[in-house]
Nucleic acid binder design. Sequence first.
DNA 1: AAGACACGGTTGACGCGTCAACCATAACGC
DNA 2: GCGTTATGGTTGACGCGTCAACCGTGTCTT
Lengths: 168, 168
Amino acid sequence: MATNGTRPLSEREQRAWDGYRRMQGLLASQLNRQLLAETGLSDADFAILSALLAAPEHRLRGLALRCEVQWEKSRLSHHLGRMQTRGLVVREDCVEDSRGAVFRLTDAGRAAVEGAADDRLAAVRSYLLDLLTPEQLDALAEISDAVLGRLAQDDPHRRAVAELARGT
Amino acid sequence: MATNGTRPLSEREQRAWDGYRRMQGLLASQLNRQLLAETGLSDADFAILSALLAAPEHRLRGLALRCEVQWEKSRLSHHLGRMQTRGLVVREDCVEDSRGAVFRLTDAGRAAVEGAADDRLAAVRSYLLDLLTPEQLDALAEISDAVLGRLAQDDPHRRAVAELARGT
DNA sequence: AAGACACGGTTGACGCGTCAACCATAACGC
DNA sequence: GCGTTATGGTTGACGCGTCAACCGTGTCTT
């Protein structure tokens, strides 16, 4: 309602935002569509499976997995449920904390990620990385860091940690 | 299945891709969540409504709208259906082509976008644009152009659209 | 004019993502 | 110990996005 005095975008800003917006949507859907068509794994599946693959014994606590992929907990729970019925993953009880859960890659799950890794890599190269100069790669990394840093400020958990560290 | 010889990512590439991947997910969900909470409009709503707002008489042909937002046609149809029941938009018949459809902004829809525009702008500034140097803004625009160009190569339809946008 | 095909748009089914409410267990304060 | 609160995780409802099939209309070929 308030007639807020946010200053309008400069042409440079407009170009950056417009480009990013379009790229973001199309790139994400293209990568997801392609991976799904070629391997039967969605982007989300792949994220979970890679995290598990990289973990010792291919098992991870729910919480750890959540930190890894940065999802809402209900999203993770729903998705793991579906992946379990597909036989990619199994849920086990947690010994240290009986309200916790541990998820382990099945053999099928392991085979699926390993089979998909090359496809994913090739796609990321051909739609993004191979198109950029080394300077652009660095720029992209720096931009991401800046944005992620800003987002972390907002995150209540990290904020609390940061405030604690400052003795507030 | 094929043991594909895709070369692995260099550290630089890894950094760029990892950063982009994380930023993309979190930024998108943050912007969407925030807009939704403050204005009741989703990211998708906002895209449609802005396109209509910018159009002469606040009306657009379905096809034109599709070019504007670059969505699949069924997505557009579904979403416009929901927006219509919410009273943001109305569907009218098309005179030139009787299989076509024209969508017009309602007064409520117009009020909603105009009310949301400032929020959106402020959020985009505070989570992205204001964090970047002019050089980074340019870099982002160039990266986006490169990727969008690559994406356009793939899809004959999108290719045609891109050519149209450049005035052929 | 007739058939074939292309095109604009809609529909239904289904998996996904979010929110809010919830359950069980653990940790803390007294 | 006992009540309170915090935490890890699940559930249900609901809107979203995609795919494939479909419908009606225009267009092209002959």
